[in-house]
Design a protein around this nucleic acid. Structure first.
Lengths: 294, 294
DNA sequence: TAGCGTCTGTATAGTAATTGTACAACTATT
DNA sequence: AATAGTTGTACAATTACTATACAGACGCTA
């Protein structure tokens, strides 16, 4: 049964807001309510709908189930089965705290459970922005002796979660995927892999190739594999000569390519002056660009 | 026998989704049902088919049998005896060849399927010795331009497979696990992670912490986390001063520890003369040693 | 080797269910 | 007054259903 946090009583939202947040049009929200009775928001005295935060989470769940291939009419049953597990906390600060604790205990499996719980309620890009990235930052600031291990455990858990999510996905093995890699030696693949998952769930066939030994090696791979595009995701600080390498890549790439990740955000102006294409910070917007390549 | 998650019983999918996932056209699915009665999905009140996740698994099996040359009409018997009967492609050379091909196509998901098929027939340590390690070696020798990507895809697939295997496992969150790490900067975690899985399946609570910044950091973590033992798994070539580092570790470790991996095999005599404990090459024997720590 | 039946995937046709959205008419909110 | 929300009906695009038909592949016989 729902155990609303105090905040969820105080905050109620009109249908417009729910539509904005979830991407489901108001018409459709009303239709779902009328036809399937999935969400029954409160009403103002005059009959206007007032959605609670829980209602919004439910809508997110519904969207996710539909993405998994379940038809709206059948969502009800699927929804009731996930309800049982929703007995624990459900807001981001609580998730973050819980996750941090489990990481410090080096408990990858329980950490995975937290990710899964959060992932049932919110979309993947929210998970990245509200849970994974903040906890990563918190770990960077932390002075605890084992924070390298915590970070590693988090990465394990995230990979586990991504893999399990994409396992239930409709796999249309397109012949010509978009390849994604990174060239800087330091840094990790975590955010890149999450982006890969988001893209796959959005129907864009992005494949992570692992770290490339050099930009040139990546270009070679683009040619050999017949990909429709290349994406360099860099989070680390750049090394020397990175401009020259990128210029080389820009000249040699047989297909459209772009740069993304924290690195590209930090050096946005510089990259732009080099006329190197960059992806937007927002995952969903970035995916729109990738879609044009396919 | 791994059972599906509780939620899966209530998830029901329309025929379109099944077609997408399995690659079998809806027409054909209906024909199979009508002619051979292989799968009998539920129906909505209005007659639309509702496939369970088990049904989808069955379709996958059928596709596999057809790929192996069994005609649809004969699939029925083959399905019932699928557990006892060995696969037609059940020899290691065939697995290796198939895996290499899929890796060169950067197809992590199909590569995962090969691992799963091999894993149904043979124990995990055989997979490591007969499939994963040989293919890794083959990739090292290969001169193909994209072999770094193949290697990375293989690692993805192996991790995916390990994760799925351990997902079906009983999670006994022992309070005092054995921590496993590596300190050499180069090298990868693949074999270490496979060993971790083998150990977990054997009931020993080994946890991979990710690469440690230094042996000392690992010792610190051993103390803080209250582990019962430490294991350094190194596959890469050693760097300078590694003897000094190991000696330091040996002096500072509050709990039993040992070294394992290709590195330890190459430098066995040297390590023995330093009185640094080493794990046997054979995974099952090594696990016997770990068991005494707990 | 030609001929014949069978197996099996797909094509077609006509009907029905599902589901997102559009519109009209009215009411609330700002 | 302008914007946004409500209900109910309606429409169009998918998607799915049944049933029949057909073509290529395969094996068997003469």
């Amino acid at each position: 049964m729902p155990t609303p946090s105090p905040a969820s009583y105080s905050k109620q939202f009109p249908i417009r807001h729910v539509a904005q947040v979830t991407g489901v049009l108001p018409v459709t929200l009303r239709a779902w309510e009328r036809r399937y009775g999935l969400i029954k928001p409160e009403r103002t005295p005059k009959g206007h709908r007032l959605y609670s935060e829980e209602d919004i989470q439910t809508v997110h769940q519904i969207v996710r189930l539909i993405d998994q291939g379940i038809s709206v009419g059948r969502v009800r049953q699927a929804l009731s089965s996930t309800d049982k597990q929703a007995d624990t906390t459900s807001d981001w600060p609580a998730f973050r705290k819980q996750l941090m604790r489990l990481l410090s205990e080096l408990n990858a499996f329980q950490a995975l459970a937290v990710l899964r719980r959060a992932g049932e309620l919110y979309p993947l890009h929210a998970l990245l922005g509200e849970l994974i990235r903040p906890v990563l930052l918190q770990l960077q600031d932390s002075e605890a002796s084992g924070r390298w291990a915590c970070r590693s455990i988090l990465m394990q858990a995230v990979h586990l979660y991504m893999d399990q999510r994409s396992a239930g996905l409709e796999v249309n093995t397109r012949a010509r995927p978009i390849l994604m890699s990174r060239c800087l030696a330091s840094g990790d693949d975590l955010q890149a892999r999450v982006f890969e998952s988001i893209a796959r769930e959005a129907g864009v066939d992005v494949r992570w190739t692992g770290p490339a030994p050099s930009p040139l090696a990546f270009v070679e791979l683009l040619q050999v594999s017949g990909a429709v595009g290349g994406l360099l995701w860099e989070d680390a600080e750049p090394v020397e000569h990175w401009e020259a390498q990128l210029r080389q890549l820009k000249g040699a790439s047989p297909v459209p390519f772009a740069v993304a990740g924290d690195f590209s955000l930090r050096h946005a102006t510089h990259l732009q002056s080099m006329l190197v294409p960059m992806l937007a910070q927002d995952a969903l917007v970035a995916i729109q660009t990738l879609r044009t390549w396919q």
